[in-house]
Design a protein around this nucleic acid. Structure first.
Lengths: 231, 231
DNA sequence: GTCTATAGTGTGATAGAC
DNA sequence: GTCTATCACACTATAGAC
Protein backbone atom coordinates (compact mmCIF):
# COMPACT_ATOMS: atom_id res chain seq x y z
CA UNK A 1 0.00 0.00 0.00
CA UNK A 2 2.65 2.64 0.88
CA UNK A 3 4.25 2.04 -2.50
CA UNK A 4 4.58 5.62 -3.64
CA UNK A 5 7.52 6.29 -5.85
CA UNK A 6 8.92 9.71 -6.72
CA UNK A 7 6.98 9.73 -9.97
CA UNK A 8 3.64 9.28 -8.27
CA UNK A 9 4.60 12.00 -5.86
CA UNK A 10 5.37 14.34 -8.72
CA UNK A 11 2.10 13.76 -10.52
CA UNK A 12 0.37 14.22 -7.19
CA UNK A 13 2.06 17.60 -6.86
CA UNK A 14 0.99 18.47 -10.36
CA UNK A 15 -2.59 17.64 -9.53
CA UNK A 16 -2.49 19.83 -6.47
CA UNK A 17 -1.11 22.77 -8.42
CA UNK A 18 -3.71 22.23 -11.06
CA UNK A 19 -6.49 22.14 -8.50
CA UNK A 20 -5.13 25.24 -6.80
CA UNK A 21 -5.19 27.24 -10.02
CA UNK A 22 -8.69 26.06 -10.77
CA UNK A 23 -9.73 27.20 -7.32
CA UNK A 24 -8.07 30.55 -7.88
CA UNK A 25 -9.89 31.04 -11.16
CA UNK A 26 -13.14 30.23 -9.45
CA UNK A 27 -12.39 32.59 -6.60
CA UNK A 28 -11.71 35.56 -8.83
CA UNK A 29 -14.68 34.73 -11.03
CA UNK A 30 -16.98 34.57 -8.04
CA UNK A 31 -15.94 38.01 -6.94
CA UNK A 32 -16.28 39.56 -10.37
CA UNK A 33 -19.74 38.07 -10.82
CA UNK A 34 -20.78 39.18 -7.36
CA UNK A 35 -19.75 42.77 -8.01
CA UNK A 36 -20.40 43.29 -11.71
CA UNK A 37 -22.60 40.40 -12.77
CA UNK A 38 -21.90 37.41 -14.96
CA UNK A 39 -22.42 39.39 -18.14
CA UNK A 40 -19.28 41.40 -17.49
CA UNK A 41 -17.15 38.39 -16.67
CA UNK A 42 -15.03 38.11 -19.79
CA UNK A 43 -12.32 35.57 -20.28
CA UNK A 44 -9.86 38.34 -21.02
CA UNK A 45 -10.66 40.25 -17.86
CA UNK A 46 -10.53 37.07 -15.84
CA UNK A 47 -7.20 36.04 -17.37
CA UNK A 48 -5.67 39.41 -16.59
CA UNK A 49 -6.91 39.24 -13.00
CA UNK A 50 -5.15 35.94 -12.40
CA UNK A 51 -2.09 36.91 -14.48
CA UNK A 52 -2.42 34.27 -17.14
CA UNK A 53 -3.26 34.32 -20.80
CA UNK A 54 -6.88 33.81 -21.82
CA UNK A 55 -6.03 30.46 -23.35
CA UNK A 56 -4.83 29.14 -20.00
CA UNK A 57 -8.38 29.31 -18.69
CA UNK A 58 -9.51 26.73 -21.18
CA UNK A 59 -7.15 24.22 -19.59
CA UNK A 60 -9.33 24.23 -16.49
CA UNK A 61 -12.77 25.09 -17.85
CA UNK A 62 -13.97 24.06 -21.21
CA UNK A 63 -15.94 27.27 -21.69
CA UNK A 64 -17.22 30.40 -20.02
CA UNK A 65 -20.49 28.59 -19.39
CA UNK A 66 -18.55 25.93 -17.57
CA UNK A 67 -17.35 28.54 -15.09
CA UNK A 68 -20.90 29.76 -14.73
CA UNK A 69 -21.98 26.23 -13.91
CA UNK A 70 -19.38 25.89 -11.19
CA UNK A 71 -20.41 29.20 -9.65
CA UNK A 72 -24.02 28.04 -9.79
CA UNK A 73 -23.24 24.96 -7.78
CA UNK A 74 -21.47 27.12 -5.22
CA UNK A 75 -24.47 29.40 -5.03
CA UNK A 76 -26.87 26.53 -4.53
CA UNK A 77 -24.69 25.19 -1.73
CA UNK A 78 -24.75 28.61 -0.12
CA UNK A 79 -28.51 28.87 -0.39
CA UNK A 80 -28.92 25.40 0.97
CA UNK A 81 -26.79 26.34 3.97
CA UNK A 82 -29.08 29.27 4.64
CA UNK A 83 -32.00 26.82 4.62
CA UNK A 84 -30.33 24.25 6.81
CA UNK A 85 -29.95 26.89 9.52
CA UNK A 86 -33.72 26.67 10.01
CA UNK A 87 -34.35 22.93 9.82
CA UNK A 88 -34.43 22.78 13.59
CA UNK A 89 -37.70 24.71 13.74
CA UNK A 90 -40.27 22.13 14.70
CA UNK A 91 -43.47 23.72 13.41
CA UNK A 92 -43.51 23.27 9.65
CA UNK A 93 -45.38 26.52 9.03
CA UNK A 94 -42.91 28.50 11.11
CA UNK A 95 -40.06 26.72 9.36
CA UNK A 96 -41.48 27.60 5.96
CA UNK A 97 -41.77 31.18 7.06
CA UNK A 98 -38.12 31.30 8.07
CA UNK A 99 -36.95 29.56 4.92
CA UNK A 100 -39.06 31.77 2.72
CA UNK A 101 -37.55 34.85 4.28
CA UNK A 102 -34.08 33.37 3.97
CA UNK A 103 -34.66 32.66 0.29
CA UNK A 104 -35.69 36.19 -0.58
CA UNK A 105 -32.98 37.68 1.61
CA UNK A 106 -30.42 35.60 -0.22
CA UNK A 107 -31.69 36.77 -3.57
CA UNK A 108 -31.72 40.44 -2.61
CA UNK A 109 -28.37 40.27 -0.84
CA UNK A 110 -26.57 38.59 -3.74
CA UNK A 111 -28.52 39.77 -6.76
CA UNK A 112 -25.93 38.91 -9.38
CA UNK A 113 -25.32 35.45 -8.01
CA UNK A 114 -29.04 34.86 -7.77
CA UNK A 115 -29.47 36.05 -11.32
CA UNK A 116 -26.84 33.60 -12.48
CA UNK A 117 -28.48 30.76 -10.58
CA UNK A 118 -32.11 31.27 -11.52
CA UNK A 119 -32.55 33.95 -14.15
CA UNK A 120 -30.06 33.01 -16.81
CA UNK A 121 -31.30 31.71 -20.21
CA UNK A 122 -30.60 28.07 -19.29
CA UNK A 123 -27.88 27.73 -21.90
CA UNK A 124 -25.32 29.53 -19.77
CA UNK A 125 -25.30 27.52 -16.64
CA UNK A 126 -28.23 25.44 -15.55
CA UNK A 127 -27.77 22.15 -17.38
CA UNK A 128 -24.77 21.17 -15.24
CA UNK A 129 -24.55 18.31 -17.68
CA UNK A 130 -24.24 14.91 -16.08
CA UNK A 131 -21.73 14.74 -13.30
CA UNK A 132 -20.36 11.28 -12.78
CA UNK A 133 -19.04 10.52 -9.34
CA UNK A 134 -18.05 7.07 -8.21
CA UNK A 135 -19.37 5.81 -11.46
CA UNK A 136 -22.91 6.87 -10.67
CA UNK A 137 -24.69 9.69 -12.43
CA UNK A 138 -25.65 12.46 -10.03
CA UNK A 139 -28.59 14.79 -10.00
CA UNK A 140 -28.23 17.31 -12.78
CA UNK A 141 -30.38 19.79 -10.88
CA UNK A 142 -28.44 21.43 -8.06
CA UNK A 143 -31.55 23.13 -6.69
CA UNK A 144 -33.49 19.92 -6.23
CA UNK A 145 -32.10 19.26 -2.76
CA UNK A 146 -33.09 22.76 -1.69
CA UNK A 147 -36.60 22.37 -2.99
CA UNK A 148 -36.99 19.12 -1.10
CA UNK A 149 -36.48 20.99 2.17
CA UNK A 150 -39.53 23.08 1.34
CA UNK A 151 -41.44 20.06 0.15
CA UNK A 152 -40.71 18.26 3.41
CA UNK A 153 -42.38 21.00 5.40
CA UNK A 154 -45.47 20.78 3.20
CA UNK A 155 -45.57 17.03 3.68
CA UNK A 156 -45.65 17.63 7.42
CA UNK A 157 -48.40 20.20 7.05
CA UNK A 158 -50.31 17.68 5.02
CA UNK A 159 -49.85 14.98 7.63
CA UNK A 160 -51.16 17.38 10.26
CA UNK A 161 -54.16 18.08 8.05
CA UNK A 162 -53.21 21.72 7.79
CA UNK A 163 -53.32 21.73 4.00
CA UNK A 164 -56.37 21.91 1.72
CA UNK A 165 -57.43 18.48 0.57
CA UNK A 166 -56.80 18.99 -3.14
CA UNK A 167 -53.28 20.41 -2.73
CA UNK A 168 -50.36 18.05 -3.19
CA UNK A 169 -47.38 18.82 -0.97
CA UNK A 170 -44.85 18.83 -3.78
CA UNK A 171 -47.06 21.04 -5.91
CA UNK A 172 -47.45 23.43 -2.99
CA UNK A 173 -43.70 23.53 -2.52
CA UNK A 174 -43.14 24.37 -6.15
CA UNK A 175 -45.91 26.93 -6.06
CA UNK A 176 -44.44 28.67 -3.05
CA UNK A 177 -41.02 28.56 -4.62
CA UNK A 178 -42.39 30.13 -7.78
CA UNK A 179 -43.97 32.82 -5.65
CA UNK A 180 -40.75 33.65 -3.82
CA UNK A 181 -38.76 33.55 -7.04
CA UNK A 182 -41.24 35.90 -8.64
CA UNK A 183 -40.78 38.42 -5.86
CA UNK A 184 -37.01 38.34 -6.13
CA UNK A 185 -36.96 38.30 -9.91
CA UNK A 186 -39.28 41.27 -10.34
CA UNK A 187 -37.44 43.23 -7.68
CA UNK A 188 -34.04 42.55 -9.26
CA UNK A 189 -35.14 43.69 -12.68
CA UNK A 190 -36.87 46.69 -11.18
CA UNK A 191 -39.27 45.99 -14.01
CA UNK A 192 -42.14 46.20 -11.65
CA UNK A 193 -43.33 45.98 -8.06
CA UNK A 194 -42.22 49.49 -7.30
CA UNK A 195 -44.80 49.99 -4.58
CA UNK A 196 -44.68 47.16 -2.12
CA UNK A 197 -41.50 46.30 -0.21
CA UNK A 198 -40.27 42.76 -0.63
CA UNK A 199 -40.66 41.91 3.04
CA UNK A 200 -44.36 42.71 2.90
CA UNK A 201 -44.81 40.62 -0.21
CA UNK A 202 -43.04 37.71 1.43
CA UNK A 203 -45.32 37.92 4.44
CA UNK A 204 -48.40 38.05 2.25
CA UNK A 205 -47.20 35.17 0.11
CA UNK A 206 -46.40 32.94 3.04
CA UNK A 207 -49.79 33.77 4.48
CA UNK A 208 -51.43 32.94 1.20
CA UNK A 209 -49.72 29.60 0.81
CA UNK A 210 -50.15 27.94 4.14
CA UNK A 211 -52.16 30.20 6.36
CA UNK A 212 -55.66 29.08 5.27
CA UNK A 213 -55.75 25.96 7.43
CA UNK A 214 -53.56 27.74 9.93
CA UNK A 215 -55.71 30.78 10.39
CA UNK A 216 -57.58 29.66 13.49
CA UNK A 217 -54.38 29.14 15.44
CA UNK A 218 -52.30 31.90 16.96
CA UNK A 219 -49.99 33.32 14.31
CA UNK A 220 -46.29 33.78 14.83
CA UNK A 221 -46.07 36.99 12.90
CA UNK A 222 -45.80 39.26 15.91
CA UNK A 223 -42.02 39.11 15.99
CA UNK A 224 -40.51 40.65 12.91
CA UNK A 225 -43.22 41.77 10.59
CA UNK A 226 -42.28 45.09 9.01
CA UNK A 227 -44.40 48.04 9.99
CA UNK A 228 -45.08 48.92 6.37
CA UNK A 229 -48.48 47.33 6.36
CA UNK A 230 -50.12 47.83 3.03
CA UNK A 231 -48.64 49.98 0.32
CA UNK B 1 -55.53 76.18 -44.20
CA UNK B 2 -55.40 74.10 -47.41
CA UNK B 3 -52.10 75.77 -48.15
CA UNK B 4 -50.09 72.67 -48.98
CA UNK B 5 -47.44 73.25 -51.58
CA UNK B 6 -45.51 70.56 -53.42
CA UNK B 7 -42.68 70.86 -50.95
CA UNK B 8 -44.85 70.07 -47.95
CA UNK B 9 -46.27 67.16 -49.85
CA UNK B 10 -42.82 65.87 -50.56
CA UNK B 11 -41.67 66.05 -46.96
CA UNK B 12 -44.92 64.39 -46.00
CA UNK B 13 -44.08 61.55 -48.35
CA UNK B 14 -40.62 61.30 -46.84
CA UNK B 15 -42.09 60.99 -43.39
CA UNK B 16 -44.39 58.24 -44.50
CA UNK B 17 -41.54 56.32 -46.09
CA UNK B 18 -39.49 56.82 -42.98
CA UNK B 19 -42.28 55.55 -40.78
CA UNK B 20 -42.84 52.59 -43.08
CA UNK B 21 -39.22 51.53 -42.86
CA UNK B 22 -39.28 51.86 -39.09
CA UNK B 23 -42.35 49.68 -39.02
CA UNK B 24 -40.67 47.16 -41.25
CA UNK B 25 -37.62 47.01 -39.01
CA UNK B 26 -39.87 46.45 -36.03
CA UNK B 27 -41.80 43.77 -37.85
CA UNK B 28 -38.73 41.75 -38.76
CA UNK B 29 -37.24 42.26 -35.31
CA UNK B 30 -40.41 41.02 -33.67
CA UNK B 31 -40.32 37.83 -35.69
CA UNK B 32 -36.63 37.18 -35.05
CA UNK B 33 -37.09 37.71 -31.33
CA UNK B 34 -40.17 35.51 -31.28
CA UNK B 35 -38.36 32.65 -32.97
CA UNK B 36 -34.78 32.91 -31.74
CA UNK B 37 -34.87 35.24 -28.77
CA UNK B 38 -33.61 38.76 -28.32
CA UNK B 39 -30.07 37.57 -27.63
CA UNK B 40 -29.69 36.45 -31.21
CA UNK B 41 -31.12 39.61 -32.72
CA UNK B 42 -27.99 41.24 -34.12
CA UNK B 43 -27.96 44.45 -36.07
CA UNK B 44 -26.15 42.72 -38.90
CA UNK B 45 -28.70 39.95 -39.16
CA UNK B 46 -31.52 42.43 -38.91
CA UNK B 47 -30.01 44.69 -41.55
CA UNK B 48 -29.57 41.79 -43.92
CA UNK B 49 -33.15 40.70 -43.36
CA UNK B 50 -34.49 44.08 -44.42
CA UNK B 51 -31.88 44.53 -47.16
CA UNK B 52 -30.14 47.57 -45.74
CA UNK B 53 -26.75 48.21 -44.25
CA UNK B 54 -26.37 47.89 -40.49
CA UNK B 55 -25.76 51.60 -40.15
CA UNK B 56 -29.14 52.38 -41.70
CA UNK B 57 -30.82 50.93 -38.62
CA UNK B 58 -29.30 53.61 -36.46
CA UNK B 59 -31.22 56.19 -38.42
CA UNK B 60 -34.45 54.83 -37.01
CA UNK B 61 -33.37 53.44 -33.65
CA UNK B 62 -30.62 54.93 -31.61
CA UNK B 63 -29.48 51.54 -30.39
CA UNK B 64 -30.29 47.85 -30.19
CA UNK B 65 -31.80 48.48 -26.78
CA UNK B 66 -34.09 51.02 -28.37
CA UNK B 67 -35.53 48.29 -30.57
CA UNK B 68 -35.93 46.09 -27.52
CA UNK B 69 -37.86 48.86 -25.84
CA UNK B 70 -40.23 49.19 -28.76
CA UNK B 71 -40.84 45.45 -28.85
CA UNK B 72 -41.47 45.53 -25.12
CA UNK B 73 -44.18 48.12 -25.52
CA UNK B 74 -45.78 45.97 -28.22
CA UNK B 75 -45.66 42.97 -25.93
CA UNK B 76 -47.26 44.82 -23.06
CA UNK B 77 -50.03 45.97 -25.35
CA UNK B 78 -50.59 42.39 -26.44
CA UNK B 79 -50.69 41.15 -22.86
CA UNK B 80 -53.05 43.90 -21.91
CA UNK B 81 -55.37 42.89 -24.74
CA UNK B 82 -55.42 39.36 -23.39
CA UNK B 83 -56.46 40.80 -20.03
CA UNK B 84 -59.09 43.12 -21.43
CA UNK B 85 -60.86 40.13 -22.95
CA UNK B 86 -61.84 39.14 -19.41
CA UNK B 87 -62.82 42.46 -17.89
CA UNK B 88 -66.45 41.65 -18.51
CA UNK B 89 -66.43 38.90 -15.90
CA UNK B 90 -68.40 40.31 -13.02
CA UNK B 91 -67.12 38.25 -10.12
CA UNK B 92 -63.67 39.59 -9.24
CA UNK B 93 -62.35 36.19 -8.14
CA UNK B 94 -63.46 34.55 -11.37
CA UNK B 95 -61.99 37.44 -13.28
CA UNK B 96 -58.67 37.06 -11.50
CA UNK B 97 -58.70 33.37 -12.30
CA UNK B 98 -59.20 34.07 -15.99
CA UNK B 99 -56.58 36.79 -16.07
CA UNK B 100 -54.08 34.70 -14.17
CA UNK B 101 -54.49 31.89 -16.64
CA UNK B 102 -54.20 34.31 -19.52
CA UNK B 103 -50.99 35.73 -18.07
CA UNK B 104 -49.27 32.37 -17.77
CA UNK B 105 -50.57 31.23 -21.13
CA UNK B 106 -49.14 34.35 -22.70
CA UNK B 107 -45.77 33.73 -21.13
CA UNK B 108 -45.61 30.09 -22.17
CA UNK B 109 -46.95 30.75 -25.67
CA UNK B 110 -44.47 33.55 -26.38
CA UNK B 111 -41.49 32.64 -24.22
CA UNK B 112 -38.94 34.83 -25.94
CA UNK B 113 -41.18 37.86 -25.99
CA UNK B 114 -42.02 37.28 -22.35
CA UNK B 115 -38.35 36.95 -21.52
CA UNK B 116 -37.66 40.25 -23.23
CA UNK B 117 -40.50 41.93 -21.35
CA UNK B 118 -39.88 40.67 -17.85
CA UNK B 119 -36.66 38.73 -17.55
CA UNK B 120 -34.10 40.96 -19.15
CA UNK B 121 -31.42 42.65 -17.01
CA UNK B 122 -33.26 45.97 -16.98
CA UNK B 123 -30.57 47.71 -18.99
CA UNK B 124 -31.75 46.25 -22.28
CA UNK B 125 -35.29 47.34 -22.43
CA UNK B 126 -37.30 48.19 -19.39
CA UNK B 127 -36.43 51.81 -18.71
CA UNK B 128 -38.40 53.01 -21.71
CA UNK B 129 -36.83 56.32 -20.80
CA UNK B 130 -39.24 59.19 -20.62
CA UNK B 131 -41.63 59.36 -23.52
CA UNK B 132 -42.92 62.83 -24.11
CA UNK B 133 -46.21 63.06 -25.86
CA UNK B 134 -48.15 66.27 -26.19
CA UNK B 135 -45.57 67.82 -23.96
CA UNK B 136 -46.54 65.62 -21.04
CA UNK B 137 -44.29 62.92 -19.67
CA UNK B 138 -45.90 59.52 -19.91
CA UNK B 139 -45.67 56.51 -17.67
CA UNK B 140 -42.25 54.95 -17.99
CA UNK B 141 -43.61 51.59 -16.87
CA UNK B 142 -45.57 49.93 -19.67
CA UNK B 143 -46.76 47.14 -17.38
CA UNK B 144 -48.35 49.46 -14.85
CA UNK B 145 -51.67 49.60 -16.69
CA UNK B 146 -51.82 45.83 -16.80
CA UNK B 147 -51.10 45.50 -13.10
CA UNK B 148 -53.88 47.90 -12.33
CA UNK B 149 -56.38 45.53 -13.89
CA UNK B 150 -55.36 42.93 -11.33
CA UNK B 151 -55.34 45.46 -8.55
CA UNK B 152 -58.87 46.54 -9.45
CA UNK B 153 -60.16 43.03 -8.91
CA UNK B 154 -58.52 42.90 -5.50
CA UNK B 155 -60.09 46.22 -4.60
CA UNK B 156 -63.47 44.72 -5.39
CA UNK B 157 -62.70 41.65 -3.32
CA UNK B 158 -61.73 43.93 -0.49
CA UNK B 159 -64.93 45.91 -0.80
CA UNK B 160 -66.90 42.66 -0.66
CA UNK B 161 -64.94 41.69 2.45
CA UNK B 162 -63.52 38.65 0.72
CA UNK B 163 -59.94 39.53 1.57
CA UNK B 164 -58.10 39.04 4.86
CA UNK B 165 -58.12 42.19 6.94
CA UNK B 166 -54.41 42.83 6.93
CA UNK B 167 -53.96 42.43 3.18
CA UNK B 168 -53.84 45.56 1.08
CA UNK B 169 -55.37 45.17 -2.38
CA UNK B 170 -52.39 46.58 -4.22
CA UNK B 171 -49.98 44.44 -2.24
CA UNK B 172 -52.11 41.39 -3.04
CA UNK B 173 -52.07 42.26 -6.70
CA UNK B 174 -48.30 42.55 -6.73
CA UNK B 175 -47.99 39.35 -4.75
CA UNK B 176 -50.17 37.43 -7.16
CA UNK B 177 -48.29 38.92 -10.07
CA UNK B 178 -45.00 37.83 -8.52
CA UNK B 179 -46.43 34.36 -8.12
CA UNK B 180 -47.55 34.09 -11.73
CA UNK B 181 -44.28 35.55 -12.95
CA UNK B 182 -42.37 33.04 -10.86
CA UNK B 183 -44.24 30.16 -12.46
CA UNK B 184 -43.54 31.38 -15.97
CA UNK B 185 -39.95 32.37 -15.25
CA UNK B 186 -38.96 29.06 -13.70
CA UNK B 187 -40.70 27.12 -16.44
CA UNK B 188 -39.00 29.11 -19.18
CA UNK B 189 -35.55 28.56 -17.76
CA UNK B 190 -36.32 24.90 -17.15
CA UNK B 191 -34.12 25.55 -14.14
CA UNK B 192 -36.68 23.98 -11.90
CA UNK B 193 -40.29 22.98 -11.45
CA UNK B 194 -39.86 19.85 -13.49
CA UNK B 195 -42.62 17.94 -11.74
CA UNK B 196 -45.75 20.01 -11.62
CA UNK B 197 -47.41 21.26 -14.82
CA UNK B 198 -47.87 24.99 -15.05
CA UNK B 199 -51.65 24.76 -15.18
CA UNK B 200 -51.75 23.00 -11.84
CA UNK B 201 -49.45 25.57 -10.29
CA UNK B 202 -51.63 28.36 -11.57
CA UNK B 203 -54.72 26.77 -10.04
CA UNK B 204 -52.97 26.32 -6.73
CA UNK B 205 -51.64 29.84 -6.75
CA UNK B 206 -54.96 31.41 -7.53
CA UNK B 207 -56.51 29.31 -4.80
CA UNK B 208 -53.83 30.40 -2.40
CA UNK B 209 -54.22 34.07 -3.11
CA UNK B 210 -57.92 34.66 -2.95
CA UNK B 211 -59.65 31.43 -2.13
CA UNK B 212 -59.44 31.70 1.66
CA UNK B 213 -62.35 34.06 1.99
CA UNK B 214 -63.95 32.41 -1.00
CA UNK B 215 -63.75 28.84 0.15
CA UNK B 216 -67.27 28.53 1.56
CA UNK B 217 -68.86 29.54 -1.71
CA UNK B 218 -69.28 27.24 -4.67
CA UNK B 219 -66.09 27.25 -6.72
CA UNK B 220 -66.01 27.84 -10.45
CA UNK B 221 -63.28 25.35 -11.15
CA UNK B 222 -65.48 22.69 -12.68
CA UNK B 223 -65.04 23.99 -16.20
CA UNK B 224 -61.46 23.79 -17.34
CA UNK B 225 -59.29 22.51 -14.54
CA UNK B 226 -56.73 20.08 -15.93
CA UNK B 227 -57.07 16.47 -14.87
CA UNK B 228 -53.53 16.39 -13.55
CA UNK B 229 -54.56 16.89 -9.98
CA UNK B 230 -51.49 16.80 -7.80
CA UNK B 231 -48.13 15.91 -9.19
C1' DG C 1 -30.60 64.33 -46.19
C1' DT C 2 -29.96 59.35 -46.75
C1' DC C 3 -27.19 55.60 -46.87
C1' DT C 4 -22.68 52.75 -47.85
C1' DA C 5 -18.49 51.33 -46.45
C1' DT C 6 -15.29 50.95 -43.13
C1' DA C 7 -12.61 51.76 -38.94
C1' DG C 8 -12.01 50.59 -34.14
C1' DT C 9 -12.89 47.81 -30.14
C1' DG C 10 -14.85 44.27 -27.87
C1' DT C 11 -16.11 39.15 -27.24
C1' DG C 12 -15.34 33.58 -26.95
C1' DA C 13 -12.60 30.13 -28.54
C1' DT C 14 -8.64 27.66 -30.81
C1' DA C 15 -4.15 26.23 -33.38
C1' DG C 16 0.44 25.74 -32.92
C1' DA C 17 5.09 27.24 -31.12
C1' DC C 18 7.82 26.49 -27.06
C1' DG D 1 1.16 23.71 -19.24
C1' DT D 2 1.48 28.10 -21.01
C1' DC D 3 1.69 31.70 -24.43
C1' DT D 4 1.26 34.24 -28.96
C1' DA D 5 -1.35 34.93 -32.74
C1' DT D 6 -5.53 34.55 -34.88
C1' DC D 7 -10.42 33.54 -36.42
C1' DA D 8 -15.11 34.89 -36.61
C1' DC D 9 -18.34 37.63 -34.90
C1' DA D 10 -20.65 41.38 -32.28
C1' DC D 11 -21.37 46.46 -31.51
C1' DT D 12 -20.73 51.60 -32.18
C1' DA D 13 -19.54 55.52 -34.73
C1' DT D 14 -18.28 58.19 -38.73
C1' DA D 15 -16.24 59.84 -43.32
C1' DG D 16 -17.77 60.54 -47.51
C1' DA D 17 -20.41 58.93 -51.90
C1' DC D 18 -24.90 59.71 -53.89
Amino acid sequence: MPRIGPQERRTEQRREQRQALRERILEVSREIVRREGFASLSMRKLAEAIDYSPAALYLHFKSRGDIARALCVEGHASLRDAFLAHTSIADPAARLNAMGRAYVEFGLAEPETYRLMFMEPAESAQPAAEVHDNGKAQAAEPGAATLSLIADAFVELRAADRLPAHAGPLACAEGLWANLHGIVALKLNRAALPETPAATLVELSLDAWFAPANRTEPRFNASNRPDTSTR
